[in-house]
Amino acid sequence: MKKCFMTLVALVVATVASAQVYVGGSVGFIGSSHDGTTKNNFQILPELGFKLEDNIAVGIVLGYAQDEVSVEKTVAGSTVTVSQKDKQFRISPYLRYTALKFKCVDVFVDAGLDYIHSDNGSVKNNTFGLGVRPGVAVNLNDKLSFVTHFGWLGYQNSKDDYDGAKATNTYGVALDGNNLTFGLYYNF
Rank of each mutant, 00 (worst) to 15 (best):
L8P: 15
L45D: 14
R96I: 00
S70Q: 05
G49R: 00
N187Y: 02
V9T: 13
T37P: 09
A76L: 14
E72Y: 09
A137G: 14
T127Y: 03
S118D: 07
I91C: 12
K51G: 12
T81K: 10
T148D: 08
T79L: 12
P93I: 05
R90V: 11
E53Q: 04
N40A: 13
I44Q: 01
V80S: 09
V69G: 01
G31V: 11
Q20K: 13
L48M: 07
G36N: 14
P46V: 05
V105C: 14
E53M: 00
P93D: 06
L184P: 13
G154I: 02
N126H: 11
A167P: 03
K2N: 15
N157R: 05
K51Q: 06
A57L: 00
G121R: 14
H34L: 14
F150E: 05
Y22A: 04
N125E: 09
T98P: 00
Y22N: 02
P134I: 07
P46Q: 05
F50N: 02
E53H: 05
G154K: 00
T37W: 04
L8A: 15
G129D: 04
G112Q: 04
E68S: 05
F102P: 00
A111V: 07
V132I: 14
S158E: 08
L8Y: 11
W152C: 01
S122M: 15
K143Q: 11
N120W: 05
G36T: 04
G59Q: 02
K2T: 12
Y162H: 12
P93F: 02
R90F: 11
N55K: 04
T15N: 08
V23P: 00
K87L: 02
S78D: 08
Y22M: 02
E72L: 11
S83F: 09
A17C: 11
V23E: 01
V173I: 15
G24C: 01
S92F: 03
K3S: 08
P134S: 12
G63S: 14
A10D: 15
Q84T: 10
D114N: 14
F29A: 10
D35F: 07
G28E: 01
L62Q: 14
Y186I: 08
Y185W: 04
N179L: 12
G151F: 11
F108G: 09
F89Q: 15
Q66Y: 01
H117N: 14
T127F: 08
I116Q: 06
E72M: 02
N157L: 06
T168S: 06
A99W: 03
N141M: 08
G151I: 06
H149P: 07
S78H: 06
M1F: 10
T98Y: 00
